[in-house]
Computed example of a mutant assay.
Amino acid sequence: MIELRNITKVYKTKNGELTAVDNVSLSIEKGEIYGIIGYSGAGKSTMIRLLNGLEKPTTGSVLVNREEISAISGGKLRAARHKISMIFQHFNLLWSRTVEENIAFPLEIAGMSKQERTKRVAELIDLVGLTGRGKAYPSQLSGGQKQRVGIARALANNPEVLLCDEATSALDPETTDSILELLLDINKRLGLTIVLITHEMHVIRKICHRVAVMEAGKVVETGKVLDVFQNPQAPITKRFVSQVSGTNETKESIEQILENYPSGKLVKVTFVGQATEQPIISHLIKEYGVDVNIVHGTISYTTSGPYGTLIVHIDGTEEQVQTVLHVLAKHELQTEVIEHA
């Protein structure tokens, strides 16, 4: 659906050349929710402008639905953009227009008749959960309601791709979750391809199927969200994952934990999918005669299934502990001995 081939974008500044995107290649499948995550300055905003044709790459090509956006201009580019819509961090609504009028605006530009516009706007208001708010002005809406208007307006012309530029960054956590659930519902109902640009790993975990991690203009890691959460490779990816997995505090207090457990091993165990629901720890205690103490644990949920991490202290003979580690591996659980006590 979307393909970036060896994209580089260089800006000329008074201080010399600035490489915002550095030789990036990505493939985004039709109907998936794809996340691009990075901190400020990583190149995310430039990426989204390349995807909708607002910027041309210095080298490389951008294809959307087999059409090379990076190689067309004028009327052809405008026609291509009708199939690529966008929602923004700060909503970008027309404050002098009502909810209905904001949603109808792109339909007016497209030349749709008033009767057809009225019908389409009513459908979209219902789709985004704003029934009864059609006559309200943006100033009368909450942040979440404003973003719902932005989503409805973006869907007006039946796009094939929806680009979300930090679309939940200005919202509180509860409202963020409601907007993400709406996007997930729209993706399932309409089969819409969604590209999310964000610096929040919670957003990626909540609804994305795959993710690309950016740093200094480069994509440093890609993969299925569950795989990336289970086994992050790049240091920056590990930082993002730790934000939502709750492992930072535990690592910082390792020395204190070890003081409380003078023998045995401290082991990090990662559970994925159905393994999160299995009573494996109690089985180990009963079957192998070891003492297992759960020091820290979390379970998180992604669109591909749940995953969990436990940091456990296993106490027993060296042979017993090695047997337990072998059994955990047989259950396809990842184990990492953090430190010898």
Rank of each mutant, 00 (worst) to 15 (best):
G191M: 14
G144L: 02
T46M: 06
V128Y: 13
V228T: 05
L163N: 06
T193P: 12
V292R: 02
V99K: 05
V149G: 11
I257T: 09
I197R: 04
H209S: 11
T118A: 08
W95C: 02
G53A: 03
D177R: 15
T198N: 14
H340D: 13
K268H: 10
V267K: 02
L266V: 14
M47W: 11
F229Y: 13
L328Q: 01
V213D: 06
L266G: 05
A80W: 08
Q320I: 09
H340M: 07
K218Y: 01
T309S: 07
F271H: 09
T176G: 10
P306E: 00
L77V: 01
E166L: 02
Y307K: 05
K135P: 14
Q89P: 12
L190C: 09
L107C: 06
Q243E: 09
K265S: 13
N231W: 02
N23C: 08
T58P: 13
K330P: 12
R205T: 11
F271D: 04
L50A: 08
T323H: 14
F240P: 15
V203A: 08
D227L: 04
E332K: 14
Q233G: 14
E249V: 05
Q274C: 04
P159C: 01
G297W: 00
S242Y: 00
E108P: 14
Y307W: 05
